[in-house]
Design a protein around this nucleic acid. Structure first.
Length: 346
RNA sequence: AAGGCCGUCGCCAAGUGGUAAGGCACCAGGUUUUGGUUCUGGCAUUCGGAGGUUCGAAUCCUCCCGGCCUUG
């Protein structure tokens, strides 16, 4: 009997190609998309946003001749992701909704509702079973690697997941889509925040009022006024609207005093320690490995970890703009070990 | 009132006769399943105003306007 798998279809090239590959491998393939928010209510125009993605996914499944359905996870998404997103900005943090949505919604509410044993996604990551554990590795096409977003996954989730794109370059994925006459083979790669059209700050204003306050230099001198703390994140350069001899970067968000602390000295953005909360290790526990690197940003190189103890990560060398609310992701070379949420180190 | 200094892009600022550097800010793109970073491109036909000298002026001269400092 053929095993069945549901491909989480985004309406894009990657998940569509994943479905094709699985079909070629002989799987009983179905397609599904999660409806995690109300496109219209969130302010997306017709032809954009989730409903448009759903129609594209539906069309792809029609062409491939596989069943398709939409699974509603709005309640969970609203509670776990949107509320969280707003709350984090409110207290001066910079949330990373994707890394939370993955374990809680996509590999949570969505996966729970599938009627197939497996789920497949269009992520560019590699998974191998070693010593009875599923281990996740960076994609061969490093430019496409998406392991950073998956630090919250567990063995239980990985056991049910397939990543058919693991060894493919993006160019090949596009070819596959084209060979099958999918209308989306040349669709653009990336979106921004999937549930917010345009500027996230406009969205935040529906939940709370932005409160202007002081912009102070690292020595405490007031040099301007900010538009509301949620307009900024650590390391940010744009948006201060302050003429200065050199670029100014956000050094700290002082939510308690509604102040934005900025600096023109990039050295001051560097840190070698940070708190880490809600840690998850893919193996179920912190692996006994010496050579651990941590990546504190989606597009950056990992830095060698000196130690992890009492919820504090110490680095071998300073890193710029470590930002509370963002994800710190641990690696051993190409292998994803786990991650956590960066906290404030008082 | 007199003497001195100064007035160049939103801010800072080069340029003292040869046809407007640069930094910041801002804007537009590229990169990117968060935010941010970063990269690329754009950004004064014009130098407080009006005249004059000159082949040619932001640069020299005259007057006016505005700001700052010093002495009354």
């Amino acid at each position: 009997m053929t095993k069945s798998v549901t491909v989480a279809m985004s309406g894009g090239v990657d998940s569509s190609a994943a479905a094709i590959l699985l079909l070629e491998q002989g799987w009983d393939v179905r397609g599904a998309t999660m409806r995690h928010f109300d496109s219209k209510a969130m302010g997306f125009a017709d032809g954009e946003g989730l409903e448009a993605d759903i129609e594209r996914a539906r069309e792809v499944c029609r062409i491939l001749g596989i069943p398709y359905r939409v699974i509603d996870v709005q309640q969970e998404f609203s509670r776990e992701i949107i509320d969280y997103f707003v709350k984090e900005y409110r207290c001066g943090n910079t949330p990373n909704p994707c890394t939370r949505c993955n374990p809680l919604i996509k590999w949570g509410a969505f996966l729970d509702r599938l009627d197939t044993g497996f789920m497949a996604t269009g992520h560019y990551v590699t998974v191998e079973e070693q010593d009875g554990l599923f281990r996740v590795f960076r994609a061969e096409d490093r430019n496409r690697d998406q392991t950073y977003m998956l630090w919250g996954l567990t063995q239980r989730m990985l056991a049910r997941t397939l990543f058919p794109l693991d060894h493919l370059p993006k160019s090949r994925v596009r070819e596959i889509a084209k060979e099958h006459d999918l209308p989306i083979h040349d669709s653009p790669d990336s979106q921004e925040n999937c549930f917010i059209p345009g500027d996230y700050r406009v969205f935040l204003r529906k939940y709370f009022d932005e409160k202007p306050g002081d912009i102070v230099l690292h020595d405490g001198t007031k040099i301007g006024e900010h538009k509301g703390l949620s307009f900024y994140t650590i390391g940010q350069r744009r948006g201060m609207e302050l003429p200065w001899s050199a670029p100014l970067f956000v050094q700290e968000i002082d939510a308690a005093n509604n102040r934005l602390i900025v600096t023109d000295d990039p050295k001051r953005l560097e840190t070698t320690r940070f708190r880490i909360d809600r840690v998850n290790w893919l193996d179920g526990a912190m692996p006994d490995i010496d050579d651990i690197g941590v990546q504190i940003r989606y597009n950056s190189k990992p830095v060698a970890v000196k130690g992890i103890a009492d919820g504090v990560v110490t680095l071998e060398e300073p890193v710029r703009a470590i930002t509370p609310g963002q994800s710190a992701v641990f690696y051993h070379r190409a292998r994803l070990l786990g991650g956590g949420i960066i906290g404030r180190i008082s």
